[in-house]
């Protein structure tokens, strides 16, 4: 009886998503704006830059943090950060190429110094 129970349990354990125990299948992203500009959104930009999927839609003033938004983007993607400069009337986009995103919670700081942007995952 014990053996049967063991066999049945093993079988049912094998039927579903095994990696669920080890690997998360969503990314919960929160970004902190360390730039002097106002960030108006974070999105995933396609490799050929023709398409984009919005991820964080918050307006994040300098020094503030966004809300935590869950997404399905686990892997390596190009992230686009849209921002506005004070006194200018257009939206700029900074693209971070080949950002590696692992499943789980990610807190990232976006900063800019002398025109060089960085996306630091903490």
């Amino acid at each position: 009886m014990k053996q049967l129970f063991f066999l049945i349990t093993t079988f049912f354990l094998l039927t579903g998503c095994l990696s669920h125990w080890f690997v998360e299948s969503e990314v919960r992203l929160q970004v902190e704006n360390k730039t002097p500009y106002t960030i108006v959104g974070v999105s995933v930009v396609s490799l050929d830059s023709t398409m984009q999927k919005n991820w964080i839609k918050d307006t994040i003033p300098p020094g503030e943090r966004s809300s935590v938004v869950a997404g399905d983007w686990i892997g390596t993607f190009n992230l686009g950060v849209s921002y506005i400069k004070e006194g200018e009337n257009s939206v700029f986009v900074q693209i971070f190429e080949a950002e590696e995103l692992n499943g789980g919670s990610i807190f990232a700081q976006i900063s800019e110094k002398d025109g060089f942007w960085s996306f630091n995952q903490k």
Binding site: D48, W73, G75, N78, G103
Partner: peptide
Amino acid sequence: PLESPYGVHNGF
């Protein structure tokens, strides 16, 4: 992993 127009998705 999967290569889609958006990048490389980890998975099976």
